[in-house]
Write a protein that binds this DNA or RNA. Sequence first.
DNA 1: GTTGTGACACATT
DNA 2: AAATGTGCCACAA
Length: 111
Amino acid sequence: MVYNIYGDIMDKSVFERIYDVVKQIPRGKVATYGQVALLAGNPRWARVVGYALHVNPDPDTIPCYRVVNREGRVSPAFAFGGENMQVLMLEGDGIKVTDGKVDLSVCQWLP
DNA sequence: GTTGTGACACATT
DNA sequence: AAATGTGCCACAA
């Protein structure tokens, strides 16, 4: 059983599915929020995906930096220490980043 | 139980 | 092409 800081139950929720999908993103690839939402089960959970990553209970196993919006651009509010941080992480995975944008045609994860 | 919010996506202006 | 509005779902107060 897993509980959040408010004591509410947290396992077996949509979040877990989202986390599972994000964790499946292979190194060197990225996925869009819509993509993750779709793989998680519903194409309309894109916002929930963002929220799920926002809480990000396990940043060590959940590479949230591999999740980008449909433009292939990292979210502005993502900057948990500078947008450059995210770019560096992506480049570290061998992903080409152009002006903070990723070539989805090349680096998007195709399951 | 109702209201407001959000790391999105899509359609329309 | 860019900006704005709408839908969508889950979560917090």
